[in-house]
């Protein structure tokens, strides 16, 4: 880190943050319309998510103590920091430092902050929801990290922008989607788990535990949580895009790839119900982990797919 370049880098990071917010929130609204057609209805307007967030932030809410507020701020701070590290098309705020593990662990700061503030509200349903979210994390993180291990081992670098650049060199055929298809499938299933889409929506589960961690939120804390949700979707989908679909060199490619991943995930999730939490773990430790290990063995020992 060079001290005099730091302010410029931070400003670039903040610009990425703003772009990510507007892009993802609009895309959320558009996806709601697409999903609504699947349900045989029209769906709300494309800017509905902006309206929701604005309304929530301007309401007077209720607070249960300092850890409730502090946890939300810590969570949002951690997620925002993760977004600032994310490479976006040609712009990387901190070139050379966008290591894969930073994303995983800074993301964990966000989860910890949210878990802390949810349980700090004093509601047992929030505790149950957080328990389920953490258990689910054990399910989806391990296969995902094994596939990424294969990628990093194969290409020799864990920097996201470099991985994207390597994939862009030879066109579509050098995408990891094409060279490591088994791993991509396993990673996509884990992506569904990360995004919290059905069938892995266990930790929200409105009909069972009344929205789990979010049961006691309202007003600006809920608004901040919605912003956090949009940012986390951005991080996860961008991660998947950079690792498997070759990143994006221009805005059109970025838009198409991002939308393809996110809309496909949403449509798949609408045709499925919700698993119970032990079924989630049993599922993740059968097929995705087998695929992930297979892919890793192929890359590490056989050298295929590099």
């Amino acid at each position: 880190m060079v001290i005099n370049q730091l302010p410029l880098q931070i400003l670039t990071g903040l610009a990425i943050l703003a772009f990510a917010f507007f892009w993802q929130t609009s895309l959320s609204g558009i996806t709601r319309k697409i999903v609504a057609r699947y349900h045989k209805r029209y769906g709300p307007k494309w800017y509905q998510e902006f309206r929701d967030i604005f309304k929530l932030m301007s309401k007077t809410g209720v607070t249960h103590g300092w850890v409730y507020d502090f946890g939300v701020m810590m969570a949002l701070g951690g997620i925002m920091a993760t977004v600032m590290f994310m490479p976006l098309m040609k712009f990387t705020a901190f070139p050379g430092f966008d290591n894969f593990f930073i994303y995983v662990y800074l993301f964990a700061v966000g989860m910890l902050g949210m878990a802390m503030s949810a349980v700090g509200s004093g509601n047992p349903l929030a505790g149950i929801g957080v328990m389920r979210a953490l258990t689910q994390m054990v399910g989806y993180e391990v296969p995902f990290m094994i596939v990424v291990l294969a990628i990093i081992n194969g290409h020799g670098t864990s920097s996201l922008s470099q991985l994207a650049a390597i994939q862009q060199q030879a066109g579509v055929l050098s995408w990891n989607l094409v060279k490591m298809p088994i791993g991509t499938v396993a990673a996509f299933i884990c992506l569904l788990g990360m995004l919290g889409k059905k069938p892995f929506e266990t930790f929200i589960a409105p009909a069972e535990i009344a929205s789990g961690p979010m049961v006691e939120y309202g007003g600006k804390q809920l608004g901040m949580l919605m912003i956090l949700h949009q940012f986390s979707i951005f991080i996860e989908v961008s991660l998947f895009m950079n690792l498997f679909l070759g990143g994006a060199a221009n805005p059109l490619g970025f838009a198409l790839k991002y939308m393809a991943v996110y809309v496909l995930a949403s449509l798949i999730s609408q045709a499925m119900g919700r698993f119970k939490i032990d079924q989630v773990i049993k599922f993740f430790y059968k097929i995705p982990i087998a695929l992930a290990i297979l892919q890793a063995v192929m890359v590490v020992y056989l050298g295929w797919g590099v």
């Binding site: 880190m1 730091l6 931070i10 990071g13 903040l14 943050l17 932030m57 301007s58 309401k59 007077t60 809410g61 209720v62 607070t63 249960h64 103590g65 507020d69 939300v72 701020m73 810590m74 949002l76 701070g77 951690g78 997620i79 925002m80 920091a81 600032m84 590290f85 901190f94 430092f97 930073i102 800074l106 700061v109 007003g219 600006k220 804390q221 608004g223 901040m224 912003i227």
Partner: peptide, 27 residues
């Protein structure tokens, strides 16, 4: 050190966002 600084920046942005909006009622 960079990670900590960026985390600090993120936290400051979240704090500003929090303070700018109406105060919550304590229950």
């Amino acid at each position: 050190t960079l990670i900590t600084i960026i985390f600090g920046v993120g936290f400051v942005v979240a704090l500003i966002l929090f303070i700018l909006h109406p105060k919550s009622r304590k229950v």
